[in-house]
Design a protein around this nucleic acid. Structure first.
Lengths: 224, 224
DNA sequence: CGCTCTCTTGAGCCCGCTCAACGACAGTGG
DNA sequence: CCACTGTCGTTGAGCGGGCTCAAGAGAGCG
C-alpha cells in the first residue's frame, strides 16, 4: 500500500534538520520523508494511526466513505498543512495523494514525549489542530446551507487564497474530488463552472484545471 | 448579553476544587461556574475569545450564520463536552444555551501557562479537541452525502448514545435546531420523524420531545 | 380563555440529481 | 502513422427529494 521511496539517508542532513525545526521546535525527533505517486494511498480508514503528516509538496485528500461508496472529502491538504493526527488508535478516514506528494511523517508515539519535553511544540500543534477544526466548521456551513453556486465560489476563493498565486488557481484535483468535497455531483460542478464562465466570474484554461478569477467581487458576493 | 448568576462565593469551595481537577489535572486554576437561561447567549460570533467552556449540565448549541440568516449548528454540547477553544483571537461561532445550562469557564490566557506547567493537561485537552475534530468529520459526511432519513437516523442514534438513557431519547432542542444541525428544513425534520413512526422505527411522546427508538436495527441500517 | 410558540401536514415547485451521450486528450500497441 | 482504449470533462433531458408557502393542530402560560 505505502511506498517509502525517500528515506532519511537519501535526504541531506541539513534538509532534515530544517524540516525537524519547521513544524514545531522539535529538537530530537526528525520526521521521516516519504514520497507518494498520483492516486497512492497514504493510509486507509481503519489503518493503525502510527504517524501523522505534514505536507511538503503536492496535494493530499482525506476522505470518508459510506458503505455504498458515497464519499465525502473533508479537506484538501496543501504544503504546510498537517493532517492524520487523531485521538483514536485507528485512522477514521483515508488519505490519498492527488498528485505527486512529499510528506513528513511524525511518529504518534513520540507525541506524548514531545509534548512533555517541549511545551511549545504542543502549543503550536494545538493551534494547528484548532485551525483544522475551524476549517471544518466553515465547511459544515458550506455543506449544510449553501447553494451549488455559493459552494463553488467559496471553494475557488479559498483555493486562490491558499495557493497564493493571485487570481490564477491551478487545481490539482479533478472534478470528482471537487464534487465529493462540496457535496455535489460531478455534473453539477461542471455545469456551475460553465455558468460562472458565462456570467464572467471566471475563465477556464488548460483543460479546465486552471481557473482565472476574473470577477473577485462577484465571487465574494456569492461567498456571503 | 451574558449573565453571571453563579459566582465563586455562592459555590461551596469543595465543589470548585472538584471542578478544577475534573477536566485535566489543573492544580492552581479553578474554572469559573456560570449559569445561563434557556436561549441565552454564552458568546456571539466575533466576541473576544477570553474563555473556553466545559458543560456541567444542560445543552449548548454552537452555530455559524450566513449574512442572510441561514444558520448551521455545528454541534450540540452535552455535559462533559468542551467547546469554545479556538486558535484565533475572536470566536468564529456563537454559543447559546438551549435549556438551563451550567458551564465551567476556563481562561484562555492561562492556557499557555497551564500547558507549560502541566503537560498532561495539554494532552487531555488535545485529545478532547481531536475528538471534536472527528465528530466534525463525521458530521461532514452526514451533511454532504446522506439523505434526510439517514441524517435523522444518525442523529437519533448519536443522541441516544451520548445521553446513555437506553432507547429513550429526551431531546432538549427544538425542531428548528435539529434542522439547522442536519442541513434540512424544519418541515422535512417533522415529516421524516412522522414517516419513521409510520415505519415503526421510533415512537414519539411528550410533544415530540421524547423519542423512543423501537427499532434500533432498522435505524442502524440507515446509518450506513 | 386567548395568546404565543412549537410542531405537523398539505400542495406545488425547483435545484441538483440521474441517466445518457459526446468530445477532448493521452497513452499504447500494431 | 493511425486505430483502439481509457480517463476526464461537458452537455442535454427528465425526474424527484427536499424546499417553499400556507394553514391547521397542540401545548404551555398568563
Amino acid at each position: 500500500m505505502q511506498t517509502y521511496s525517500a528515506r532519511a539517508s537519501r535526504i541531506p542532513a541539513a534538509v532534515v534538520m530544517r524540516a525537524a525545526t519547521n513544524l514545531p521546535t522539535a529538537i530530537a525527533v526528525a520526521p521521516i520523508r516519504r514520497n507518494f505517486g498520483k492516486g497512492e494511498e497514504l493510509f486507509a480508514e481503519g489503518d493503525k494511526a502510527e504517524y501523522f503528516y505534514k505536507v511538503v509538496s503536492g496535494t493530499v485528500r482525506t476522505a470518508k466513505l459510506l458503505s455504498d461508496g458515497r464519499r465525502q472529502i473533508d479537506a484538501f491538504h496543501l504544503p504546510g498543512d498537517v493532517f492524520g493526527l487523531e485521538s483514536s488508535e485507528d485512522h477514521r478516514f483515508a488519505a490519498e495523494a492527488i498528485d505527486n506528494v512529499v510528506v513528513e511523517a511524525y511518529r504518534k508515539s513520540q507525541f506524548a514525549r514531545l509534548l512533555h519535553d517541549d511545551p511549545e511544540f504542543g502549543q503550536k500543534l494545538m493551534s494547528t489542530m484548532l485551525r483544522n477544526l475551524e476549517r471544518a466548521h466553515e465547511h459544515m456551513v458550506l455543506l449544510g446551507r449553501k447553494t451549488a453556486q455559493e459552494k463553488m465560489a467559496t471553494f475557488l476563493l479559498d483555493m486562490a487564497e491558499r495557493l497564493h498565486k493571485g487570481d490564477q488557481v491551478e487545481l490539482s484535483m479533478q472534478r470528482t474530488d471537487i464534487a465529493d468535497h462540496l457535496g455535489l455531483t460531478i455534473e453539477t460542478v461542471s455545469r456551475t463552472l460553465t455558468q460562472m464562465v458565462r456570467d464572467g466570474l471566471i475563465k477556464l484554461a488548460a483543460a479546465g484545471r486552471t481557473i482565472i478569477l476574473s470577477d473577485r467581487a462577484g465571487l465574494q458576493q456569492l461567498n456571503s
